[in-house]
Computed example of a mutant assay.
Amino acid sequence: MLSPRRHPVLCVLLVCALAVLAARPSDSSAGDGVSGDTGGSGTGAGAQVARLYQDAAVATQQYERGRIQAETQRAEARRLEGLLDEERREIAVLHEDLGRIARAQYRDGGALPLAARLLLAGSPEELMRGQRVVSQADAAVNNAIAKSRRAEARLAADEAQAEAAWQALEERNAELAAMKASIARKLEEARTRLQGEADVSAAAGSCRGAVRLDQPETSFTTEWVAPVETYALSASFGSGGARWANRHTGQDFAVPIGTPVRAVGAGEVVKVSCGGAFGMEVVLEHRGGYYTQYAHLASIAVDQGERVETGQWIGQSGTTGNSTGPHLHFEVRVTRELGSGVDPVPWLAARGVRLG
């Protein structure tokens, strides 16, 4: 039967995709210089974190496909274990048959030599009948022994094959665990470096040029999307707290440092700022007179005056400015400046984007 220490076949097979770091060259583009340095590029910590996130997303999709395949493989493994059990029961029956035949031979004098059987036989016919019985018994014994040996050999081969497969799986699992730990370590190091660079810019109130990121291949069929792909909602619009002078003016998305931040809709970059309570931030203007703000970023991937499309990466989340931890602060306003905010959750819901 399956050992409890053995993991399901293939259940972690595709986590190894996390070890494949993309080596695609990043675009290198100078920003138009909001202030400070203007030579941003896609080769720094921000680009590295973005690539790691992309690789993790691809690996997640592959893992999900592998999980479905693992269910099939697990069923096959259980079927094979069932067959091994049947083989073991068959061998037990064969052994019982051998014992029964041997006992019958002993009772019927099958072990007597031919001379003794001639002396004990009452007639030639009786001798011939006895000889036929003995020959049939001998043939049955030989057949049972051969059948038993074949079954034992098949069982031994199947058990050896199954054990080798489980051992290979366990060795692969150990390798994958090490690879996963290595990727997690590299990602954490890149996040720390990215946030450190962002803190310097935010403290100086001076933005570097846009850090261009390799944009993912997207095919959105809607005009609007959520500002981040995977998230947990935290502080909501209008909530109170010691961190805000009055009420919370946006919706917070709890995400790790370096998470790609998306433009919720097509528009124009009307503000890029790197100081103050919002830290590094971007403000977009959309049709209909609405503005969206993306604050506490760790990097900015667009320049002021630039046109952006729905879902385009415009930066990466962080914890710059008045922030107690990594998250994206997202606002919807009727002006580009603070103080005209509307609740982002129903605003997005009215445009087909439901958060939760």
Rank of each mutant, 00 (worst) to 15 (best):
I145E: 07
V264P: 08
V282G: 00
D214F: 11
W313M: 12
P8D: 12
R67K: 05
Q195T: 05
W166E: 15
E306N: 08
R212C: 04
L2Q: 15
Q61S: 05
E87M: 13
G258N: 09
G36V: 03
R6Q: 12
A165L: 06
T335M: 14
V225M: 11
M179A: 14
K147D: 01
A70F: 01
E126S: 15
R129N: 00
H7T: 05
A45I: 04
G279L: 14
T259L: 09
A75R: 10
S41Y: 08
Q312H: 02
G205L: 04
P260E: 07
A350I: 07
G250A: 04
L169F: 13
F253M: 02
R51D: 10
S323E: 06
P326I: 11
E64A: 14
A50E: 03
A349V: 03
S35M: 10
A210S: 11
S323D: 00
E87G: 11
E96T: 07
R172V: 12
R78S: 13
G66W: 03
I91S: 13
P124T: 11
A298L: 08
H327E: 02
G82L: 02
Q161K: 15
E197P: 06
L119F: 00
T72E: 01
P113S: 13
L119K: 04
G276F: 14
T43D: 05
F278V: 10
R150H: 03
S28Y: 00
L83G: 02
T319H: 14
S299E: 04
D303L: 03
W244D: 01
G279M: 07
S29M: 13
R333N: 14
G240W: 01
Q167V: 13
D303K: 02
R307K: 08
Q316C: 12
G130C: 10
S26Q: 11
R212N: 06
E188R: 08
Q316I: 03
Q73G: 11
P25N: 09
S340F: 01
A70Q: 00
D158T: 15
L213N: 04
S3W: 12
R51I: 12
A111S: 01
G289L: 07
L94S: 11
F330S: 11
G46N: 03
G205I: 09
I101D: 02
V15S: 13
G39H: 09
